[in-house]
Design a protein around this nucleic acid. Structure first.
Length: 258
DNA sequence: AACCCGCCCAACCGCGATTTT
DNA sequence: GAAAATCGCGGTTGGGCGGGT
């Protein structure tokens, strides 16, 4: 079958979003939750394609998003996950609280990829680019990577041992430092949009049950039922190897319900 | 000061998957 | 079961920005 355009091309605005558009979209989703995206532009009074609205919301306007560069730990986790999942950015993003697939994809292409190549590692296979003759000047980098890899393996236990493991805005000093020192124009803009449109009230995020779980728990299931499904999905992605599952079993699952 | 160039990232596009009719 | 509608993902693009000359 021929594929229909996602929306009427006529009268649909493209390009960067304005503050007014952001406010309209945020307002609409605050009032109605996330329903069918195709209907959103019309109902919200936006001259945008529904797809564009969805992207804008998921990649930029969602309140649980972290902003700023990925931390060292996050970067290492991305590398680790990419080695296992490949370019399945949405799956990778699901394991990084507050990060979007687009953000991770961009970061991979602009930073990590180059870093790995510089280290003599194929970013696609995660194998040494030239196993026989790794450049001498990369030895130190290789060592750094190995050290980082060890650190990434520690990361899981580090995360699981934290009482605030499900609260990314609280769980690391790096986040805290960024929240104060990296507040850029975007953050100011977002503050403006949100201050104009909402009331950062937890009750709002109960509007949409299926979304509130994922938002409030940052990729971890909110109940044991969800956890079973999540675990199946997890095993499907990673196989039965114990990548992080050990630490999950140690987690206090009740803590994932807040 | 003006220009060039590369980097970064928000946004778009196309397509497969899933759901609805 | 087929067709249509919608969603979601991954690849790509293009414009803004900063550094270098």
């Amino acid at each position: 079958m021929g594929r229909q355009p996602c929306c009427d091309k006529l009268g649909v605005k493209k390009g960067p979003w304005t503050v007014e558009e952001d406010k309209k979209l945020v307002n609409f989703i605050l009032t109605h939750g996330q329903c069918c995206w195709r209907a959103v532009p019309k109902l919200a009074g936006l001259r945008r394609c529904g797809k564009s609205c969805r992207l804008r919301w998921t990649n930029y306007l969602r309140p649980d998003l972290k902003r700023g560069l990925l931390t060292e730990d996050e970067e290492q986790l991305v590398i680790d996950l990419h080695a296992r999942l490949g370019n399945r950015w949405s799956k990778i993003a699901a394991r990084l609280p507050g990060r979007t697939d687009n953000e991770i994809k961009n970061h991979w292409n602009t930073h990590i990829k180059k870093k790995l190549i510089k280290m003599g590692i194929d970013p696609l296979t995660h194998e040494p680019l030239n196993k026989e003759a790794t450049p001498q000047h990369n030895q130190d980098d290789r060592h750094d990577l190995e050290v980082n890899h060890e650190e990434s393996q520690k990361l899981c236990s580090h995360v699981s041992s934290s009482d605030n493991s499900n609260a990314p805005t609280e769980n690391s000093s790096t986040d805290e430092s960024r929240s104060t020192s990296d507040l850029g124009d975007d953050d100011l803009l977002m503050n403006y949009i949100w201050s104009e449109t909402i009331f950062l009230d937890d009750s709002f995020w109960n509007i949409s049950p299926e979304t509130s779980g994922s938002y409030s728990n940052f990729g971890l299931p909110s109940s044991e039922d969800n956890f079973d499904q999540w675990l199946l999905d997890y095993k499907k992605d990673f196989g039965d190897e114990d990548f992080g599952l050990g630490c999950l079993s140690n987690m206090d699952m009740n803590s994932g319900t807040h």
